[in-house]
Design a protein around this nucleic acid. Structure first.
Length: 356
RNA sequence: AACCCCAUGGUGUAAUGGUAGCACAAAUGAUUUUGGUUCAUUUAGUCGAGGUUCGAAUCCUUGUGGGGUUG
């Protein structure tokens, strides 16, 4: 089979490419170029969006040379600016917390990149990536499943892919655990076998991307008492503990961003607890769950899925009840629903509250 | 003006003559393909000056800075 594999220059996508080749496929490496020098400062860390991209591409190129496969780089900087960065700015400045990776996966890696590759004349039957997730057949068609290693599972980031795309994807690492992938990298003799794991969204301070002048305001408690000052609510996110600079008997957490009043509202850890949430702009990868169904839900990529009851689900959104509660769901983040290991779909959190 | 109370890391507090401890904050690291969370480590203090004592955050004198009562 002809396969295009998205390469990041990291261990995971490299091993995925080697596995596909070993399985006898005809493989071509592809990479999105999204960084533009001069427009942003970047930083020292490793990140998807940052000046380190040049090195990432060099490593991916070297990998393809070693494997003896073709390699293509596609300039996606313009669409990335409008699809990811504009969204990122808009959300933060509206007092919400965006998830750029979800957006990037849905519209860039599995959207723009695929189209540009096809337009360039590259022929392939499947697009593959090094994500820890699985595509498996279900009664209603191909379905997205969590990776078999619950620690590394990345299905949360993939829930927004168009359902029709699932049939054309491959995730070669879906059955592996990270240590196994590292061993495979060594076995394949890949130069990237000792590359560090983590890869942030942005290599610098994310607030640099917002182009927002500081706007000082109050940090208040639920009763409205002023406890401290901030330089712009977009420097914070619901559930955040560090960086408030306020000494108190108990650690304080952000419980709300009030963009209208330019206030950051803080409280005790217990004040972040919510029992209900409403999500909009859903993407469904399975038949709509029936009201009353118990599912597992994740409101952030890390952390275990929580039991949740679907109160209502439609093409417009859904509402959930968490019998055991959920800590600090943030507006703008995604709630993703699972039935066992299967991703049913997800949506963007609009609102969360404690008492029905 | 007189009298009383108080003064301990950046903040809030323990330690009634015997190793200055805790919480929060901050910094660093680990974890993590968002933001965050969590975990570990570190930084940092007895208001100044004298005195008593083997030994003072603690007792005495005084200065300084807060708070209160009286007129």
């Amino acid at each position: 089979m002809k396969i295009a594999i998205g390469l990041s220059g990291g261990v995971d996508s490299s091993v995925a490419a080697a596995l596909l080749l070993e399985a006898g496929h005809e493989v071509t490496g592809v990479t999105m170029k999204i960084w533009r020098d001069g427009l942003y400062r970047g930083g020292d860390r490793d990140g998807c969006f940052g000046p380190g991209e040049t090195d990432d591409i060099r490593r991916a190129e070297a990998l393809c040379r070693q494997l003896g496969i073709a390699y293509r780089v596609f300039d996606c900087a313009d669409p990335y600016e409008s699809v990811v960065l504009d969204y990122f700015r808009r959300e933060y400045l509206a007092g919400r917390t965006p998830n750029p990776c979800i957006r990037c996966n849905a519209f860039m890696k599995f959207g723009v990149l695929t189209e540009l590759a096809r337009q360039s004349g590259l022929e392939f039957d499947r697009l593959a990536t090094g994500h820890y997730a699985r595509i498996r057949p279900a009664a209603d068609g191909p379905a997205l499943y969590a990776g078999s290693d619950p620690v590394r599972d990345q299905s949360y980031f993939l829930h927004r892919l168009p359902r029709a795309r699932l049939a054309h994807l491959l995730f070669p690492l879906g059955e592996y655990a990270k240590p196994e992938v590292r061993r495979l990298a060594a076995r394949f003799g890949l130069a990237v076998k000792d590359q560090p794991d983590s890869q942030d969204f942005y290599s610098g301070d994310y607030t640099e991307l917002l182009h927002a002048a500081d706007r000082p305001g109050d940090i208040v408690d639920a009763a409205g008492r002023v406890l401290g000052r901030h330089n712009g609510f977009w420097h914070y996110t619901v559930g955040q503990r560090k960086g408030l600079g306020i000494a108190s008997p108990q650690p304080l957490y952000v419980i709300e961003l009030n963009s209208c009043r330019n206030e950051v509202v803080v409280g005790a850890a217990s004040d972040t607890l919510r029992r209900y949430l409403r999500a909009g702009d859903p993407n469904w990868l399975a038949p709509l769950p029936v009201a009353g169904t118990m599912v597992s839900a994740k409101v952030r990529s890390a952390g275990k899925p929580l039991p949740a009851r679907v109160l209502e689900a439609s093409e417009a959104g859904f509402r959930l009840e968490f019998p055991d509660g959920v800590n600090a769901p943030a507006r703008g983040q995604s709630a993703v629903l699972y039935d066992g290991g299967r991703v049913l779909g997800g949506g963007v959190i609009e609102e969360a509250w404690l008492n029905g």
